[in-house]
Design a binder for these strands. Structure first.
Length: 647
RNA sequence: GCGCCCGUAGCUCAGUUGGAUAGAGCGCUUGCCUCCGGAGCAAGAGGUCAGAGGUUCGAAUCCUCUCGGGCGUACCA
């Protein structure tokens, strides 16, 4: 609601300033430092002062006099030496909220593609992958909440080096047959088995340099799609993808389509892109130096101050293509400029009806159309920004300048481990590492916190609490409540940091359910619902708010600062979401959710709702309780967090 | 070396794109359950926004330099 008024005021002022001064200055809206100054503050007079060579105060007076009246605004004041403070009409505002004149998020044209998760299918997911998935999934929810059509893709690199290493481990190191590996898939926690094997293989390469030939042989076999190694590759990757989907499902994260690298190769996506790259001279065949025999992209294409040595290999000297090459083809497909398309089959359909499709080489009749996006967000950690620059440069070199500009690297910093948590996990640290603020995780070394282990631990912690508080409830239900609390805590924890903050993961902090946490927010929502439930239990009914709170009653009740400020804060969800989408920063919404919960807890403590005697005030308190409850539920929903029935 | 990111309370972090007296959580000190559930509420202590210059009405925010930390800079992703 609040941001509707913001927009109204912004456009009214902009129109006047354009007409009066012929200036296209953007109208910025601030929140006054002190609530007593009003609800909005405009520093526009300062912005115009230099341009117009006039005192800010005089300009402010002209603007206020000229802007006329705006619906929902009760008045303007000029403060300081030129601030324009806005006061809203509280009665009108309250009524608008009550009548739920919720602006339906106008659906926006075009289609957005968000690619996230993208875990190499060769080992269990860890906390770093969770940050990626939660960030991506939440951004998708926010985009959809603001009226965008969004397609969610999870790219599966099933033909890359990491899968090859695990396959080589099974085949060369452990001498396992296809049948034996299949057996492991069905009888073990396969992603955990591969986690350990991957670490063992990496260590083995280090000690036996010549063993790296296994990787080459396996990579070739997988790329060619023939033989036992290739079959193993499919078994491993497919089984691990299933595990990853299950892990993400626990956090209510899902996808529309899984484009796989094997199809990028077999449906000639890469061959097509390769031809175009050669034709456009975006890459060239190196005949000397360290990259002799490779197809490379010159460094100048993606970096302004690149030297001779900075070119990037796209096709290796043995003829296999690097990740970057395949990613260029994939990006082209996303924008619908490759001239080729995947076929799809259903991978699975969940009970709620949601279907995940996966790419395939076999034509099928009834699959939907994917790709052809107008804007693309790639959720990839910041360590890969160099590679993302190369991919973007590839698009540019091919002449897809517009697409390159609409391809956003939605980057975020890594999740590391706090030294204390390393100790808890039994990880030995060098003296140097102990002094660091955090220690980087490494899948190659098998160093890290597995996603499922963390989720299990969170559920266990929540379960203890729920069991002691609600021994009377059914065990199955208590379990569901514990799960909601655990996932709420985890998603919130990963979202409360801004994207470019390194998270030093700490068990103690992540397992906390007090203060700035998901459960704190959930608890506020539960409390609000409890009041409304209690009302019914006592045989009372909700008043007819529309009749009990006409505009005069609303202005009377909201005249005091207390209720007004609470209501105002609760009505700003739309602004928070808008800001988060505009800035690409989901943490804004997490922060808002926390503030909302604080505001409600404040209200809860200060005003006993059910025992209020005055009918009008009681109606207002009940209405505000209901409003808070809905806002909390909805905002948590945008964060992918559920409100349990009790806590 | 070069590129990107970071440095704000004891600790972990915000700070709405340059606005009014820099804010939270945790921890610490002290209060609050005859009341809609205390995973809560209230109060207090705690700051040279790494440092130095600059830009202007106005800087934690922009520019330059210095110091400190991180991540990249693969024929891994």
């Amino acid at each position: 609601m609040f941001h509707v008024l913001e927009n109204r005021i912004r456009s009214a002022f902009a129109t006047f300033i354009q007409a009066r001064y012929g200036a296209g200055t953007p109208v910025l809206l601030d929140q006054p430092k002190q609530a007593s100054f009003g609800e909005l503050a405009l520093p526009i007079a300062f912005q115009l002062a230099k341009q117009l060579k006039k005192a800010p105060k005089a300009i402010a007076q002209e603007i206020v006099a000229g802007a006329g009246s705006i619906a929902g605004v009760s008045g303007f004041e000029i403060a300081g030496n030129g601030y324009i403070n806005v006061r809203l009409d509280r009665g009108v505002y309250g009524r608008a909220l009550l009548e739920g004149s919720t602006e339906p998020a106008a659906s926006r044209p075009g289609k957005m593609i968000v690619e996230h998760t993208n875990i190499n299918p060769n080992k269990a997911a860890h906390i770093g992958h969770l940050r990626n998935a939660v960030l991506g999934d939440t951004f998708v929810r926010l985009l959809r909440a603001s009226g965008n059509r969004v397609e969610v893709q999870n790219y599966i690199d099933n033909t890359g080096v990491q899968v090859a290493d695990v396959v080589a481990g099974f085949h060369f190191l452990e001498h396992k047959t296809v049948a034996e590996v299949r057996q492991l898939v069905s009888s073990t926690r396969f992603d955990y088995v591969c986690w350990d094997l991957y670490a063992r293989v990496s260590a083995y390469y280090k000690e036996h340099g010549e063993a790296i030939a296994w990787r080459q042989e396996t990579l070739h076999a997988i790329e060619a799609g023939v033989g036992e190694l290739s079959e193993l590759g499919h078994i491993v990757a497919d089984a691990i993808v299933e595990r990853h989907l299950a892990t993400m499902r626990r956090l209510d994260i899902t996808y529309d389509v899984l484009p796989r690298e094997s199809e990028i190769l077999h449906l000639k996506f890469w061959a097509t892109a390769f031809e175009q790259l050669k034709e456009r001279k975006a890459i060239y065949f190196e005949t000397e130096g360290k990259n002799k025999g490779c197809w490379v992209m010159p460094g100048a294409a993606f970096s302004s101050d690149a030297g001779e040595d900075d070119s990037k290999v796209i096709v290796r000297s043995n003829g296999t293509v690097t990740y970057v090459g395949k990613d260029i083809a994939y990006q082209m497909w996303k924008f619908g400029v490759l001239g080729r398309d995947f076929y799809y089959r259903v991978l699975r359909t969940y009970p709620d009806g949601h279907t995940i499709w996966v790419s395939t080489t076999e034509p099928s009749s009834d699959s939907p159309a994917f790709g052809k996006g107008d804007q693309v967000f790639n959720v990839i950690d910041s360590r890969q920004s160099y590679l993302q620059d190369v991919v973007e440069a590839g698009l540019r070199q091919l002449g897809y300048v517009e697409q390159a500009e609409k391809s956003v690297h939605f980057s975020y910093e890594m999740v590391a481990l706090s030294p204390r948590t390393c100790v808890e996990l039994g990880i030995e640290l060098s003296e140097e590492d102990q002094k660091r603020p955090y220690v980087e995780v490494s899948g190659r070394k098998g160093l890290g916190v597995k996603a499922d282990d963390l989720i299990d631990k969170l559920i266990e912690t929540a379960q203890k609490e729920v069991d002691s508080r609600h021994p009377e409830a059914a065990a199955e239900e208590r379990r569901r409540v514990a799960e909601a609390i655990a996932t709420g805590a985890l998603r919130y924890f990963l979202l409360k940091f801004t994207r470019n903050t390194v998270i030093a993961f700490d068990f103690q902090e992540a397992l906390s359910f007090e203060g700035d946490t998901g459960p704190y927010v959930q608890y506020a929502a539960v409390r609000a619902r409890n009041i409304l439930r209690k009302l019914e239990e006592r045989g009372m009914r909700m008043p007819d708010f529309a009749a009990a709170l006409p505009e005069e009653a609303m202005s009377r009740q909201l005249a005091g600062e207390d209720f007004w400020q609470l209501l105002l804060a609760a009505s700003k969800a739309g602004s928070a979401i808008e800001r988060a989408v505009r800035g690409g920063e989901p943490s804004h919404v997490a922060r808002y959710a926390f503030q909302l919960a604080q505001a409600f807890n404040n209200f809860y403590h200060a005003y006993p709702v059910l025992s209020e005697e005055d009918p009008e005030k009681r109606a207002l308190l009940l209405w505000m309780t209901q409003y808070f409850q809905r806002q909390l539920r909805d905002v948590l929903g945008e964060l992918g967090i559920h409100v349990p029935p009790y806590m």
